[in-house]
Amino acid sequence: MATLHILVRAGAIAALLSLLANGAARADTADAAHTRHHLKLPDAAARSTASYPIPRVQLLRADGKRVWLADELDDGRPVVLDFIYTTCTTLCPLSSQTFAALQEAPGVGHGRVHLISISIDPEQDTPDRLAEYAQHFNAGPQWQFYTGTIEASLAVQRSFRAYFGDKMSHPPLTLVRSAPGKPWVRFDGFASVDQLLGELHDQVAVR
């Protein structure tokens, strides 16, 4: 948003128009996709896989315990991870609703998958506020929330390529890892419960 306005202020009309044209082109692509898959929403999540170095940071869990991120990730269970902040009114509630539905899904419940939500607004999101947020979404014991210092939160965001400059413009992102050492599956966009279940299915089925 800032970019556009800077352009406006600089009077860089050509650049502005080309930006607008890009937007139009993107809309066209969405239209084409829409024609091919009538039921697919224009902003369905894109899937990719990647490996991320896990930073050596401590986080503060909503129950007040200081924990190492690596220990939380490597507890043997498949992990589903997202980034949220509790005063977010747009994207995070949808992500969290998806997690809420996921934790109830057959094969996922009974603590078989670890759901992890990390705050990208750690100063505001005290453990108490996170606990309140967790309760609002009926988070069970297998879905845990984390805050910490600003530096720790940033380190985690950066290592997962999930840092976008400020909390308000963070795009929807969900990460799934079937087991420690396995690559991460990354969903940019709104991952549906079914998509996430698809990634988890093999793991939870054999358990």
């Binding site: 948003m1 902003d43 009114t89 539905a101 413009s169 929807p172 940019d188 419960v193």
Partner: peptide, 30 residues
């Protein structure tokens, strides 16, 4: 298939904001 939302969680203001002028993310994805 879908996720139900209700009451204050479903209020228009959450996304379209009090001004009704909406918003856009920096990377224009949302």
């Amino acid at each position: 298939g879908g996720l139900a939302t209700r009451g204050g969680d479903a209020a228009c203001v959450n996304c379209h904001l009090r001004s009704g002028l909406g918003s856009i993310s920096t990377d224009r994805r949302v």
